[in-house]
Nucleic acid binder design. Structure first.
Lengths: 139, 139
DNA sequence: CAGCTAAGTTTTATACGGCTAACTTTTAAT
DNA sequence: ATTAAAAGTTAGCCGTATAAAACTTAGCTG
């Protein structure tokens, strides 16, 4: 088991973004990362170096960016949290979708693994409860 | 309605801490703030100045710190979120208490008002459901 | 009231992460 | 092949927040 030096929210956001871009475009480009995170192109380079130094991405100057296996694991974990949290906010709490997405984006960094695991189980239990479904239908 | 220039998580944490100290000791002292936030005394002063400049606390050098009405409102809002989130984590998800507290500490900054309001309603509904109580008793 | 100690402050330095503007490399079009 | 635009990088700056260490103030205590 590795000593998880905790990653900043920022780093998690970069990894998540890179994963999404990789899925959509095969490969992540600096410019698209900047757009997705709403920051300037120039700000991205420094972080890419940091991520590469930490072996979370493969990166050479002027080249494409791809996640290493380790980076991908982390990115997928965050992405999964995002999905679950957004689903909870949107489908169960009935928060409007854009806001659910934004809020999930922030909450995804705040939960430790244990709490998140239990949260997932909780939702499963909730969805399995027939009475809950009835109540929702009434609304 | 004021344009809520969003406060940093950090500022929210300071206000929450000051509120707690005020309740416990009538008044907040720099040293106790430092201890509660696990930072050094020297780091507190700068932030106190910033909070005073924003009219969130009353503060003079070498004096006690108290929340202004505005600061108190914010602090109470955060404190309430903390309570609700911790309760959810601890009582409903059955996360152990220390962890529930820590996690609530981070999540309390991540939710927008709408999402939080709906979350509170959701918990109320949950607690009102007799079937849920049964299930918990079985566990 | 002298002097010590605890609390508070100041200064200097560090890390992070963003911006702008200028510069370089790559790419695409002619 | 040339060259212009797009993408990427670099350098210098700012703001936020922290630490460490030296210094100041407030409050005892003898």
């Amino acid at each position: 088991m590795k000593k998880n030096i905790p990653l900043s929210e920022n780093i998690e956001d970069y990894l998540e973004t890179i994963l999404r871009l990789q899925i959509r475009n095969k490969v992540a480009r600096s410019k698209d990362i900047a757009e997705a995170l709403n920051i300037k192109r120039g700000s991205v380079t420094g972080m890419l170096k940091k991520l590469a130094a930490r072996k979370l991405i493969d990166y050479e100057p002027y080249g494409y960016v791809t996640l290493t296996p380790e980076g991908e694991n982390i990115a997928k974990k965050i992405e999964y949290r995002h999905t679950v949290l957004k689903d909870f906010l949107f489908r169960i709490l009935e928060v409007d979708e854009a806001r659910a997405d934004e809020t999930a984006c922030r909450m995804e960094h705040a939960m430790d693994s244990q709490s998140f695991r239990k949260f997932v189980e909780f939702i499963a239990t909730l969805d399995a409860c027939p009475h809950r479904k009835q109540n929702l239908d009434q609304a």
